[in-house]
Amino acid sequence: MINLLLLPAFTLILIVFIIPIIRYGWISLHSFSLATNLSLIPNQFANWDRLLNDSRFWVDIYQTTRFAFVSVFLEIILAMIIALTLNKHFNNRGIIRTISLLPWALPTTIMALGWRWIFNAPYGPIEQLIRILGLAELNILSNPNFTWIATVIADVWKTTPFIAIILLAGLQTIPKDLYEAFKLEGGTYFDSFKEITLPLLKPYISLSIIFRLAQAFGVFDLIQVITSGGPAGSTESIALYAYLNAMRFLDFGYSSTIMVASFILLILLILVINLSIYSGKKILSTIKL
């Protein structure tokens, strides 16, 4: 029996999450586009068949995964450094903490426009800097081999503060005593990071990884603004492809298929990560200090 107290939360999840996914799954088994006068006509697995053979979809999956993994990896490392710094006592710590959160508070479209300008050639600041250094033009937004890195940089800039705050919250749950006791035992700063901070921060790190991977996997506005998926489709994400199919091509059947497929892939990905992080260890006992 469902606990009555859980009912409101469960209903909410049902309405905003489960029902839409089920509906997308149902639509994905239909033709639903301009060609069918925007009415649903069952077509068995034709959309899924098309998806499996759609190289653009698989390229986008690869590009999205690459974007997500590299972004989240860099974000975790940078956020850890920032959190460790902010966890120290220094003057005006409150102000600096707030300022460091600013990138995260900015609307994505606005900050993405900013990055598009920064990377812009030949007038953007990065190109100017490269010219001052006497190097050749970089043209990062024009080179299909490297443009994705620009989108990663923008994403890292925006989201690192968010992870830093999660990790900072985690750091603050670790009693100072532990570090002092360890110091008396002869542990260096590096030792205590390895033996105390990292293991005790693990729940927070894995929370950040899973949360951010799921978010990065659905990246849309950032890429739409900076590159529109170009050049040569090299930065197109799954969400962008699904969006194009729905809003530009009015092919809702195929768009739903893309969304459901990427949802399934994301769930699988998170399951794998979960298993690898928590394998064999009773994580709950570390959370309940």
């Binding site: 301009l34 080179n143 299909p144 170009g230 050049p231 489709g233 194009l244 530009r248 091509f249």
Partner: peptide, 23 residues
């Protein structure tokens, strides 16, 4: 054509590939 968005998207991707020397 009502599929203009699709065919224009295809053209854009391929032209972009050409002028960035990918194809």
């Amino acid at each position: 054509t009502h599929v203009y968005a699709q065919i224009s998207n295809v053209l854009q991707r391929n032209l972009s590939s050409i002028i960035t020397m990918q194809k």
